[in-house]
Design a protein around this nucleic acid. Structure first.
Length: 283
DNA sequence: GAAGACCTGCTA
DNA sequence: TAGCAGGTCTTC
């Protein structure tokens, strides 16, 4: 599942592959709902003969700046990926001026492409990107202080902090030794500090390792070259239910939080009694 | 705040 | 063959 580190890896690769400066000569759309609300015809009309000036990222959104004064925003959602080689699950193909073709692959068809005049209308709804200085400890503390939601639900909320998905949320909470159901507004200052640094740490490690791949190549993350990320070996919690905690050897447990599978260590990530009581009152 | 919808490949 | 996985939007 592409989260911040996976999206960052793909953005870096697209830049390195010289996508900036390329002109889109023609387009194939094999699954039109991805580009909604534009029609196939509108999309091609607005994007053909347009050059890509810059490739960037904010949270999990990829940002393709264009010389037409429009912006193409791409969200990979669950299973989107890019490649310069074709595959069975290509949904959109951009044919470029240097004769290469950029294939957008998406087995589950969940990804979304937004060709817009004002990208800020979408991007301003996001909280600060987790790896920028805008995501500061003081911001994080303030953001948590007024929210009673379970901490995992809150850090998955892109309007609070942009970039975390299920994998890195579990990893950050394990790293900070915080129970995923802990009410956000009852975390202590030291817990907030620990979680803030844990979020930065696990995401930076994810970027360094070029993303996390867990399953097969059809449904799981692959980079631009079809290569798995190397972060799987660094994963301490996500997907390890039943295996021993790397810190205390207690078998990791799996529960559902915010409708997501959630793996944690019931020994390291305890919820304190006062907070637990508050949680019951809230729910 | 929670559940359903969108999707399809994989697993039990 | 039913159920699961998951990011975000919509609906209740």
């Amino acid at each position: 599942m592409p989260e911040l580190p996976e999206v960052e890896t793909i953005v870096q690769q697209l830049r390195a592959q010289g996508l900036e400066g390329q002109t889109i000569c023609s387009i194939d759309v094999h699954w039109a709902p991805i580009i909604a609300p534009l029609s196939d015809k509108q999309f091609k009309h607005q994007l053909c003969n347009v050059s890509i000036t810059q490739v960037g990222r904010n949270g999990k959104w990829m940002i393709f700046s264009l010389d037409s004064n429009q912006t193409l925003l791409v969200h990979l959602r669950m299973a989107g990926s890019f490649s310069f080689s074709p595959s069975l699950y290509d949904r959109i193909v951009l044919h470029l001026s240097d004769k290469r073709s950029l294939y957008y692959r998406d087995t589950r068809k969940f990804g979304r492409w937004k060709l817009v005049d004002h990208p800020e209308e979408i991007l301003d709804k996001l909280g600060p990107d987790a790896l920028t200085s805008h995501f500061s400890q003081s911001y994080f503390g303030t953001a948590l202080s007024s929210r009673k939601r379970k901490i995992k639900a809150l850090i998955l909320d892109q309007s609070c902090v942009a970039g975390l998905g299920n994998i890195y949320a579990d990893e950050a909470l394990w790293e900070a030794k915080i129970h995923p159901c802990h009410p956000a507004n009852t975390l202590t200052d030291s817990q907030i500090k620990a979680l803030f640094h844990a979020i930065k740490k696990v995401l930076k490690l994810g970027v360094k390792n070029r993303g996390t791949s867990l399953g097969d190549g059809k449904t799981n993350y692959r980079d631009l070259d079809g290569i798995s990320g190397n972060n799987r070996g660094a994963v301490k919690a996500y997907g390890r239910a039943g295996q021993h905690c790397n810190r205390c050897q207690t078998p990791l447990e799996k529960i559902t939080v915010a409708q997501r599978g959630t793996t944690f260590c019931s020994h390291c990530q305890k919820i304190d009694v006062a907070a637990s009581t508050d949680s019951q009152k809230i729910s």
